[in-house]
Design a protein around this nucleic acid. Sequence first.
DNA 1: GTGAAAATACTCCATTCGGAGCATTGGCAT
DNA 2: ATGCCAATGCTCCGAATGGAGTATTTTCAC
Lengths: 223, 223
Amino acid sequence: MDKKITIGIAEDQSALRRRLIEHFRFFDEVDVTIACESGDALLERLPALPESRFPVVILMDIEMPGSNGIETTHRVKEHYPQTDIIMFTVFEDDDRIFDAIQAGASGYLLKDEPVDVIVQAMKELREGGAPMSALIARKMLGIMRRAQLERQRPDDAELPFNLSARELEIIQQIVQGKTNAEIGEAMFLSPFTVKTHIKNIYRKMHVGSRAEAASLAYKRNLV
Amino acid sequence: MDKKITIGIAEDQSALRRRLIEHFRFFDEVDVTIACESGDALLERLPALPESRFPVVILMDIEMPGSNGIETTHRVKEHYPQTDIIMFTVFEDDDRIFDAIQAGASGYLLKDEPVDVIVQAMKELREGGAPMSALIARKMLGIMRRAQLERQRPDDAELPFNLSARELEIIQQIVQGKTNAEIGEAMFLSPFTVKTHIKNIYRKMHVGSRAEAASLAYKRNLV
DNA sequence: GTGAAAATACTCCATTCGGAGCATTGGCAT
DNA sequence: ATGCCAATGCTCCGAATGGAGTATTTTCAC
């Protein structure tokens, strides 16, 4: 059988914190090894824990005095990237969810979830999942629909519009607002050559000005 | 008790399709009302269904001949936005997950999930969740960490660089590659006026050319 | 109702750009 | 080997841009 899941708790409301600790006692799978009333306290006390009692999962309140849950998550993941963090909150606005994920949270539960669901979430986490309350999961989808993905292009993939590598270099200078002369200087080329390249770029991209080319370059993730 | 969940299936492998239909029979909660071997067939046959047999959830394979699952999802959501779609696939690359979500999918299951998990996912969906296989949920988090969120600006929030509303309008035309004369025509302004606005824009944004302004506009989500 | 800010409009001038055409070189593929 | 295409460089010309300065009208807040 697997070892117990060691849990950390950061939650400023002492009543809730104690209630959680009490309830977790009834579950054999988990073991609360640290519980703090603030993110700062958690960060202070974590280094002192022996490895065997170091939390594998931290239940993190978002709203806390001092360092809030987002900041604390950032710092914890910085020092202990292998520790998973579940945000635990009553709030559910999109920006906060997004920020929590970006900070490194791997799960997001609303505080009204029953304790057995929380324990189940811990197990899911350890099995590679990303437990989320239904409402949060739905909101995440909404966030993703509004998000722009920065798709990275494999090096050998062909560039949009059949642009050559050289032409791409030139575009990158164009979006910086450089003149042909400046680009030539930067690339050790005659400004005439730069101009010829730009002519070809315009033809391939079906545009007719630097602004339009820059715009299209952004839209197509060329820069 | 709630009514049965009506299910649609789009899956080109006939063996799997039949297996799913067979297995779903054992679950009282669900009722397969339509099963097709392609996205095109689904789109063709959906309009003919009576409302009572219209699928509330569609299990959608991604890899299909003709319209693939992403395209089909797009079209289904376009015509039947209230129908939920679960992507059902063996593939799990980030771009595909992202595209599926953007197309309007509300869940994402791997084909190796047991049927009872799939049925459970349907129920979760109806309860407002977004069921995902553990692996997919984790990948979604990774995608979100790389994503840029387009945070929408409240109407009364001040624009970056203290640009006026009128100036913003002009920028939008600039990124389209228009000349001052064309902008003037579109906005019923003298080209001289357009020029004056652009001068002010340059001053406020600390740039000196249309390409640079367009570029910065994209970076700051002005367009 | 007064003042500040924004929007409108124009002039002059030097620089830059975009379009067309042309030429040479070097590398890569058939 | 040969032919194609990318990369390089150039000329001429007209159109558009960018910079500076000035002026009138509108609008909106205090």
